[in-house]
């Protein structure tokens, strides 16, 4: 049972974890690299659009535009593109939803869903193990329970991840603002804010996975290695479940796929809150289940 005091402790640990991470050189470097990656990716995206438009302008023998985006905007709003996209997606609602979003938002969402698991494994994997290794945990677990400590630590990591993802969204927004012609500020901001909580929820499942793989490791280095092994295994299982769910052991592969966060990624592109809520609930539950399994072992561990 979680009463008011354990909940308060969990929040205290989470807040302290967040502050500690923002002061730790390694975490800061990882976050800075992630943001830099977002900056480079968004600039590359703008550059690619520009080059595509130049090619199109040359083929049509029209004048090239100074800033990219105008032609793309025209294409995105064309009926032909709409029809092509609708055929690409089995669900027309999804196609309509995606068509209504600025392309930079789609790129932000796609890249974040692809790279957030790596960000989490790099920042969250050794958060508990490091404290066990340097015995700093002994100052804390004399004052609060191990469950509150672990949940607080990973809640702090989830908060950090959500902050970094939002910051990356603003980087994309700024780059698109400067680089794309006909940039629509409010629809882009709106799109980023639509995907931000989805990415955070998706990332939370990986925070749980990092906890499961790493919190009982012997050392911080082993924890980091195990978290990447866990991520790889999870990805492979997700791929196998996706490909073989119609095969002989289809039901088993479907069940395995359900337990892997990667399998729930596609559903996060659905429109509306109601459309993604069940998947988000599953992802949060997965994160908590992963953490709980890790905690069962951690509660019995000698510190």
């Amino acid at each position: 049972m979680i009463g008011p005091t354990p909940f308060r402790d969990m929040l205290l640990v989470a807040w302290f974890e967040l502050k500690e991470m923002l002061r730790t050189r390694r975490a800061l470097v990882v976050i800075a690299l992630y943001l830099l990656g977002g900056l480079v990716a968004s600039r590359v995206f703008v550059g690619v659009i520009g080059r595509l438009e130049d090619v199109a302008a040359d083929m049509l023998q029209t004048t090239r535009t100074a800033t990219p985006g105008a032609l793309t905007r025209q294409v995105l709003h064309s009926d032909a593109y709409r029809e092509a996209l609708v055929r690409l997606f089995p669900n027309r609602n999804v196609a309509d939803f995606l068509l209504g979003l600025p392309p930079i938002v789609l790129f932000f969402a796609w890249s974040s869903l692809a790279f957030v698991p790596f960000l989490i494994m790099m920042t969250a994997a050794d958060t508990v193990t490091q404290e066990v290794q340097d015995r700093g945990i002994r100052f804390v677990v004399i004052r609060t329970g191990r469950v509150e400590f672990v949940l607080g630590k990973y809640l702090g990591q989830a908060l950090l991840m959500s902050f970094v993802v939002l910051l990356t969204g603003f980087v994309y927004l700024a780059v698109a603002w400067r680089g794309l012609q006909g940039f629509e500020f409010w629809p882009t901001l709106d799109g980023i804010l639509i995907f931000w909580p989805r990415i955070v929820v998706y990332g939370f499942a990986f925070v749980g996975l990092a906890g499961l793989c790493a919190m009982n490791a012997r050392s911080a280095a082993v924890a980091r290695a195990l978290s990447f092994v866990g991520l790889t295994v999870s990805w492979v299982l997700g791929e196998m479940a996706y490909r073989w769910s119609d095969g002989i052991f289809g039901a088993a592969w479907t069940a395995i796929g359900f337990l892997v966060p990667f399998s729930h990624k596609a559903a996060l592109w659905r429109p509306g809150v109601a459309g993604v809520l069940p998947e988000c609930a599953v992802l949060v539950a997965l994160g908590l289940v992963y953490l709980s399994v890790g905690l069962v072992m951690f509660r019995r561990k000698d510190l």
Binding site: E20, R135, G136, R143
Partner: peptide
């Protein structure tokens, strides 16, 4: 910890305070 929090304190051997 639910019963003894704040009632038991310890100087653990070799435990490190957060460096940063």
């Amino acid at each position: 910890p639910s019963k003894h929090r704040g009632r038991v304190a310890v100087l653990p051997q070799d435990a490190q305070l957060g460096r940063d």
